[in-house]
Amino acid sequence: MSSNLVAFIIGAGSNIGDAVAAKLREQDYKVALGSRNPKVDGKAKGHYFPVKVDAQSKESVLAAFESVSKELGPVNVVVYNVGGQYPPPNPKDFLSIPLDDYFKQSAVGLNAYTAAQAALPGFRDPVHKNHPKAFIVTGNILVYNWVSSALHWHTLGIQKTLEARLIATSAGAYEEEGIKFYYAFLVGRDGGIPDYDEEFLKSGPIHADVYWKLIDGEKKHWEQRFDLDGKKFPHEERL
Rank of each mutant, 00 (worst) to 15 (best):
F49R: 00
Y102E: 10
E66F: 08
V127D: 14
I9T: 08
G46W: 11
P87D: 11
D125T: 10
Y86N: 12
F103D: 11
S106L: 04
A7W: 00
Y86T: 14
I9N: 10
S69F: 08
Q85C: 09
A32G: 05
A32C: 05
A7V: 00
Y29E: 01
L33N: 00
G11A: 12
L24T: 03
Y86Q: 14
E59Q: 15
A32K: 02
S67L: 01
L99H: 04
H128Q: 13
V61K: 07
V40N: 01
Y86M: 06
K45A: 06
D41I: 07
G46V: 11
D41T: 07
Q117G: 06
H47T: 02
D18P: 04
G109L: 01
Y80N: 14
N81E: 06
Y113N: 07
D18Y: 11
S35I: 05
K23L: 14
A116I: 02
P87Q: 07
L72H: 11
G109D: 02
L99M: 07
Q117M: 10
Y102M: 14
N90R: 09
D18R: 09
K129N: 10
A19I: 07
G84C: 11
L24D: 03
A115K: 03
Q27S: 13
S69V: 15
P98V: 10
A64E: 02
V79L: 15
H128A: 14
F65W: 07
R36C: 00
I16L: 01
S35Q: 04
V53I: 13
V68E: 07
V68C: 04
L120V: 02
V20F: 08
P88R: 11
K23R: 13
P38C: 07
P87Y: 07
N130G: 07
K39C: 00
V79P: 14
A44S: 02
I16V: 03
F123N: 12
L99V: 09
P98T: 05
E26M: 11
N4V: 05
A19S: 13
S35A: 15
I97F: 13
A21C: 06
A21D: 00
Q56S: 14
F65M: 08
V40A: 02
F123C: 09
F49E: 01
Q117C: 09
S2Q: 12
V40G: 07
V51F: 10
P87G: 03
K92Q: 12
A32W: 01
F49H: 07
L110D: 10
Y80D: 10
G17E: 11
E26F: 08
E66A: 15
T114C: 01
H47Y: 09
K39G: 03
V127C: 14
Y86L: 14
N37P: 12
P38D: 05
N111H: 12
I97S: 04
